[in-house]
């Protein structure tokens, strides 16, 4: 009895020792010399693996950061400037300041403004519908509403509004990784510079058709009437291919173009409501 116990203990110990030796040599042989800083940098990154930096994942980006001479053009949109600064400190380099941005939908063709003319019967996919025809409405440039961007978003920042049939992007959740921009077959999503209080002024239309055709398809289409171009004092507005575009970097949020736009295709978001002049006067009289 006791001999069995002893034999067992000895044989198992021997087996363990042999395995340990083999493991040790194997580990030596296959040891990969890796910069230990990569692990530290990766730990500092948000681990979203969204690909917003242009690399496949956070690990690849960490490798690129460690290998990089300067941080020019390297930016983690999810972590933002803070994360980049802390990594720069870690690696003894300086991080550039990148403007935080947010995704914005350049279409406002709700069913109310953009009547349906056909019924699409097929796979719910913007790409497939886009390859087939111009969509359920007569606008060849507008949102198809099948939600390819919703599927592409890894942060639950986009959902389709059941009333407007358009995607709604949550400013708080959006990290500007750009996945939705790539997923949209009609290139309707733009990453725009974030402003104070998430204020936004942009042309919510991408229609490149001539004004008459565009307005027939959708009541809030940009018809390239040039009114906004004339009223803008900062040269932020350009008109190309029959539609206006507001440069978020030049825009000062004066809101003059919004009032001027005859088709209401320029949107203002997160602004306090305008006080009509009459009302203001009334208030002064009363006060």
């Amino acid at each position: 009895m006791s001999s069995t116990v002893i034999v067992t203990i000895i044989s198992l110990s021997l087996l363990a020792a042999v395995s340990a030796i083999i493991l040790y040599f194997v580990a030596q042989k296959f040891h990969v010399v890796e910069d230990p800083r990569i692990d530290d940098v990766q730990a500092a990154l948000p681990a979203a693996n969204c690909g917003g930096c242009g690399y496949a994942g956070c690990r690849n980006f960490a490798e690129a950061l460690v290998a990089a001479e300067t941080f020019d053009g390297l930016n983690c949109p999810v972590g933002g400037n803070e994360v980049m600064k802390s990594i720069a400190g870690m690696l003894g380099k300086t991080a550039g300041e990148a403007d935080p941005s947010v995704a914005v939908l350049l279409c406002n063709g709700t069913p109310q403004y953009r009547p349906k003319t056909t019924r699409y019967d097929g796979v719910v996919s913007c790409q497939i519908q886009h390859n087939l025809y111009l969509g359920e409405t007569n606008c060849s440039y507008g949102c198809l509403g099948d939600g390819d961007c919703v599927k592409a978003c890894g942060f639950d920042a986009i959902m389709i509004d059941s009333e407007t049939m358009l995607p709604v992007i949550s400013d708080d959740k959006c990290v500007a990784c750009g996945a939705c921009v790539k997923s949209c077959p009609r290139h309707l999503i733009e990453l725009r510079k974030k402003a104070k209080k998430d204020r936004k002024i942009y042309v919510a239309c991408s229609n490149c058709d001539k004004g008459a055709v565009a307005i027939k398809a959708c009541k809030v289409a940009c018809i390239a009437c040039n009114k906004c171009l004339k009223v803008c004092e900062f040269g932020a507005i350009t008109i190309e291919k029959n539609r206006a575009y507001i440069d978020a970097k030049k825009c000062t949020f004066c809101r003059k173009c919004v009032a001027e736009c005859s088709t209401h295709s320029i949107m203002e978001v997160n602004f306090p409501p305008r006080k009509p002049k009459v009302e203001t006067e009334m208030l002064t009289i009363n006060g």
Binding site: Y133, N138, S140, D209
Partner: peptide, 11 residues
Amino acid sequence: IDTVIDASGYR
């Protein structure tokens, strides 16, 4: 001479 929706599905 203008655009029209044709059998291709687009204008």
